[in-house]
């Protein structure tokens, strides 16, 4: 395990060095800023980035993700309870995943203006469906034999859900969350690119108009750092909670 960690660190360092080298040869920061220039930029703009733009983006991400989790779980439970609903909705849900978010997001800005809700809606659109489908598949992976065993004990539908289906789907729920976090960050950033007055995505776009390459990259680096850190935390929680899985 330790060996593998070293290997990935080495790869990342290698890529950064290569990037730095290429950037220095090109020597045009508005086309390709070097990693050092980006870090410098983050430091220079630290107050604006961390105290103004980041909280704005986080607000969108957290609200969007929370709505998605509630709606996604709700729909998964509902489809599992009612096969007719599953038949009706499942293909529609899959189809909506093919809508390019960048194309539909400007429409939301038209509807909701520059308020937070146009951005939340984009985030929800990107994360709601993966959560619903992953958790639904988790419910579906319930073993029929276990369901029958509980039935012979006299279990009600409620018992089956709480004692069997929910625990069966728990690992899928964690996978869904881990998948949804980066998507929600991307969703928020895309929405901000397309129409906003604050946020990391908005800031990145503003720097673009000023041909400030390092300024474009700085918020992006922060965005991916947020996503990676959160996924890491969730993974740790998952490891603590789901100790019963077979090795």
């Amino acid at each position: 395990m330790k060996n593998k960690n070293w290997l990935s660190v080495a790869v990342v360092v290698g890529i950064l060095l290569l990037w730095q080298g290429v950037a220095m040869i090109i020597n045009a920061h508005y086309i390709l800023p070097s990693p050092i220039q980006i870090v410098k930029k983050i430091w220079e703009l630290k107050e604006n980035l961390f105290l103004v733009q980041m909280p704005a983006t986080l607000k969108v991400t957290v609200i969007g993700l929370a709505i998605s989790i509630v709606l996604g779980l709700g729909l998964a439970v509902w489809m599992d309870e009612c096969p007719a609903l599953e038949k009706a909705l499942y293909p529609v849900i899959v189809a909506t995943q093919t809508i390019p978010t960048t194309a539909i997001a400007p429409l939301f800005v038209l509807w909701f203006g520059y308020s937070i809700w146009s951005k939340v809606l984009v985030t929800v659109l990107m994360t709601f469906f993966p959560i619903a489908i992953t958790v639904f598949d988790g419910f579906k992976s319930t073993k029929r034999e276990m369901e029958e065993l509980l039935t012979t004990y006299g279990a009600s539908k409620r018992d089956l859900f709480w004692k069997l289906k929910l625990p069966t789907a728990l690992p899928s729920f964690f996978s869904a969350i881990k998948m949804a976090i980066p998507l929600s960050v991307i969703g928020a950033a895309i929405a901000e690119w397309l129409g906003a007055q604050e946020g990391l995505g908005y800031f990145s776009k503003r720097m673009m108009t000023q041909l400030d390459g390092a300024g474009v990259f700085a918020p992006i680096v922060i965005l991916s750092a947020i996503a990676m850190l959160t996924v890491f935390i969730i993974t740790k929680i998952e490891e603590k909670w789901i100790t019963w899985r077979k090795d």
């Binding site: 073993k143 276990m146 065993l149 625990p167 077979k246």
Partner: peptide
């Protein structure tokens, strides 16, 4: 009381 071929112990309990 039915006991199936597989033990069917719930792994999370």
């Amino acid at each position: 009381a039915y006991m199936p071929q597989k033990d069917l112990l719930f792994p999370w309990r």
